Simulated assay, not measured.
Amino acid sequence: MPKMTFIEQDGTRRDVEAPIGLSVLEIAHRNDVDLEGACEGSLACSTCHVVVEPEWYDVLTDASEDEEDMLDLAFGLTKTSRLGCQIIMTEELDGLTVRLPAGSRNMMGG
């Protein structure tokens, strides 16, 4: 089974199993990684914002216009930022590494 790594805000690396077809957000939740998904993957928030390690960014499919619009609202946006709900695991992404940004801004005021 493919694996992926989450780098938590304190620098802790968490290597987890990453079933093909699941999103990074779903994988995070299965493994108790602290990645919020307030809108549950419906592209209505930016709380599942992750920073993809540069060597992996180009392997991902391009962000949709809707995802780009939501990323514009993400806190701590970087050149390799993506929304975790939009990154779907494939064989090619075995070993994918993403960082959790230092904070997130929930549009719901939380």
Rank of each mutant, 00 (worst) to 15 (best):
R99D: 08
M1Q: 00
L25R: 06
S23I: 15
D32S: 13
G110M: 12
V98P: 04
G110A: 12
G21S: 13
L25Y: 01
Q86R: 07
L22Q: 15
I87K: 02
D32Y: 00
E91K: 15
Y57H: 12
G84H: 04
G95E: 01
A28P: 02
D69H: 14
G11I: 05
I7L: 04
T5Y: 02
V51M: 01
N31H: 15
G41K: 00
R30P: 07
E68Q: 15
T12H: 04
T90E: 05
N106A: 11
G103S: 10
A38W: 01
E8Y: 05
D69Y: 12
S42V: 01
V59Y: 09
Q86H: 03
V59P: 00
I88E: 05
V24Y: 01
T5H: 09
R82P: 05
M4R: 01
D15S: 13
D15M: 10
V50F: 00
M1C: 08
D62M: 11
P2H: 10
P101D: 10
I27D: 04
G76Y: 11
T61K: 13
C45S: 07
V52W: 02
S23Q: 15
R99N: 14
L96I: 05
E26R: 09
A74T: 08
A44V: 10
A102T: 15
D32G: 03
T78K: 13
L43E: 07
A44I: 08
G76C: 14
E53A: 14
F6C: 12
D62A: 15
D62K: 12
M89I: 04
D10T: 05
N31W: 09
M1Y: 07
S81L: 08
L83E: 04
P101S: 14
Q86I: 03
L43K: 06
R82M: 03
G95V: 06
T5Q: 12
S46A: 12
C48D: 07
L25C: 14
L25N: 00
D72P: 04
G84C: 06
I87F: 04
G11P: 02
P2A: 07
I27T: 06
A18R: 02
S64V: 06
C45Y: 02
